[in-house]
Design a protein around this nucleic acid. Structure first.
Lengths: 150, 150
DNA sequence: ATACTTGCAAATGATTTGCCAGTGT
DNA sequence: ACACTGGCAAATCATTTGCAAGTAT
């Protein structure tokens, strides 16, 4: 899977809605696919594929394959907070842009519009249409930045 | 190796200077270490460890080990542009923050101060001291953003 | 002399792929 | 029926680690 391409995002607020969106995209609903969607919904944040496979007693490759299909159809996406596996989320659930504290691991989820001014600045100064959805914005959170850093 | 910690950066503009800085840090100068430094200098951008090992006919593990030591002492750092291996650079050479076009692969290197306003905005609005040195800022470059995107 | 370094082999972790049997529509 | 999907095993890619032999200081 390459970096999340520019696929229309299908925001969704319940497993049922996700399943409907999935059918509308012409996808089949298999047991595994349903479980993955429910698993993503049940999670309290973005989840890695191995984690998901473990919790659902599914094969990792099946999970990866399903996440890949879902992502290609704009139902899920994945982020990297730092090193470590990619973390998957349903569009509409744990969706948005992430701030990640590299010291304490704190993760802050921003609404999609909160970084508009930042994107605007980068666009106007460098011509670059930035998206902070694939990589988190890494740094130090308030507490870690003020207390002794390193 | 964890995400580049908050180590003082030793900017350097020639292999000789790098070697001096290295000695000042109490590090030994082995043949491999010298080759790695020269290799990073010769490169016209950040380079992956496997690439460096190949070009220098060195074992990958030695290259990784050296890059790790150098990074811990503030002589090098590494970035992730997207998926794929981390890319290493000497501080002072190919150093700064990267914009990465996920469509055409174009990489733009910004001077360390060019994103100050962005960092300031994020700091004041979210309390987060952002650094764009570990992950590139992914998006579409000017051309790719205007022409049909996906 | 001693601590640090190397190459090589093997382990790890994340992700992908081949294959053939099973399932959704 | 037929194309799509699942599990399992094996491959791949990036990176790390153990170890015994070699080297910098």
């Amino acid at each position: 899977m390459t970096i999340a391409p520019d696929v229309p995002r299908l925001a969704v607020t319940s497993p049922e809605e996700a399943i409907r969106a999935l059918r509308d995209s012409g996808l089949r609903l298999s047991t595994v696919r349903r479980l993955v969607i429910e698993g993503l919904f049940a999670a309290d944040g973005p989840v890695s594929a191995p984690e998901l496979a473990l919790q659902l007693s599914l094969d990792e490759s099946s999970v990866y394959r399903n996440l890949e299909v879902l992502e290609r159809h704009g139902l899920t996406r994945h982020v990297h907070l730092g090193h470590g596996p990619g973390l998957y989320a349903l569009i509409g659930r744990d969706d948005g842009e992430y701030l990640y504290c590299e010291r304490c691991g704190k993760v802050t989820l921003l609404r999609a519009d909160e970084l508009e001014p930042v994107r605007d600045h980068i666009k106007s100064h460098f011509g670059h249409a930035a998206r902070f959805t694939h990589f988190a914005i890494v740094g130090f959170c308030e507490e870690c930045a003020s207390s002794g850093r390193s």
